[in-house]
Simulated assay, not measured.
Amino acid sequence: MESTNKINASNAPKPVGLYPHARKVGNLLFLSGVGPRVAKSNENDSDVPGLKLDHNGNFLEFDFEKQCRSVFDNVNAVLEASGSSWANLVDVTVFLVNMKRDFAVYNKVYAEYFKDNQPCRTTVEINCLPTPIAIELKCIATID
């Protein structure tokens, strides 16, 4: 069996469970699900860009585009910490909690970030994510 290396990026949000940010197997890099929380956070709701909740968990502010941009920045941070890059992404699985509301914005922002590199992509709607975020990415990249 090929050796595997676990990678944790100091400039990406901490995982919310017992798993690494990424794992290298041969020249492939498998990223765990990456969300939009800011790097210093763990599960603090106030650390989700574009999201403010009241004491009952109701939305006071919601900006999905900010979450999209933040999740892409976090994916890039994990890629760079792993010795890979945005250009090396080959497959992206996108989890949205509200396809009807968020897909058009997501697709627009995605086109900005992926105009040069166009990895395979699957987008699915899910019921919820483990923290109050609206998007998460699961990625596979190569390492040169």
Rank of each mutant, 00 (worst) to 15 (best):
E61P: 04
P13D: 09
D47S: 04
F64E: 02
L96K: 01
S3E: 13
S3T: 06
L51Y: 01
V109R: 02
R121F: 08
R69C: 07
L79E: 03
L51N: 00
G33F: 11
N42G: 07
P132Q: 10
L51A: 02
L60S: 08
G17M: 11
F30D: 02
L28A: 07
V124S: 13
E125R: 03
C120D: 12
S32N: 15
A87K: 12
S82C: 04
N76D: 15
P15F: 09
N56A: 10
V92F: 00
A22P: 07
D54Q: 12
N76I: 03
I135N: 00
F62K: 13
D54G: 12
E112R: 05
R23G: 05
P132S: 08
L18G: 05
T123S: 14
N11Y: 08
H55P: 06
A9R: 08
I133K: 01
K108W: 08
K66R: 12
I140Y: 02
R101I: 03
A134N: 01
F72W: 03
I7V: 15
L96I: 02
V16A: 11
S82M: 03
N107A: 13
N11K: 12
E43G: 09
A81E: 15
D144N: 14
L96D: 00
G35S: 02
D47W: 01
K24F: 07
F59I: 04
F62P: 03
N56I: 03
N98C: 07
V75K: 10
T142W: 05
A81Y: 13
C128Q: 15
K115I: 13
P130S: 06
Q118T: 12
I7A: 12
S10N: 12
F95C: 07
I140R: 05
D45V: 03
A9W: 08
K52M: 14
P36D: 02
L96N: 02
K66V: 02
Y113T: 00
